[in-house]
């Protein structure tokens, strides 16, 4: 019971934050909708945990809670992978900028001038 309340509270908190950020145009509409949808599902599942059982059984998993854990792991792993790829890209872009600045500001000793 306590866990359910905490989970719902956190979901509401997440939705509030996203809404605020969307109003301030800090996140896209796409991000706002998918994020809100995700946390709404969390609230529904927290209130009626049995609701996920039929879906779980459909894919051959006994309990809905188990299904959620599996899905969460896959989604999180994918998200992490995406972030790593993105990070690598940003690193390369930083190098490009640093390189360009270094070349533009080349310092020569007197002999070369």
């Amino acid at each position: 019971m306590i866990f359910q309340i905490l989970l719902i509270a956190f979901a509401l908190f997440a939705i509030t934050i996203t809404t605020k950020q969307y109003r301030l145009r800090k996140v896209s509409l796409y991000w706002f909708i998918s994020w809100t949808l995700l946390w709404t599902i969390v609230i529904v599942v927290a209130l009626i945990p049995q609701a996920t059982d039929p879906i779980a059984q459909l894919v051959g998993i006994e309990r809905g809670a188990d299904l959620l854990v599996y899905v969460a792991i896959v989604v999180l792993s994918y998200g992490l992978y995406r972030v790593l790829v993105r990070l690598e890209k940003v690193q390369k872009e930083i190098t490009q900028v640093v390189r360009q600045v270094a070349i533009n500001k080349a310092e020569k000793s007197k002999g070369h001038e």
């Binding site: 930083i94 640093v98 390189r99 600045v101 080349a106 310092e107 020569k108 000793s109 002999g111 070369h112």
Partner: peptide, 12 residues
Amino acid sequence: LDAGAIVLRHML
């Protein structure tokens, strides 16, 4: 620079 090189500086 003093030794006669051309120096490029990475700022990071």
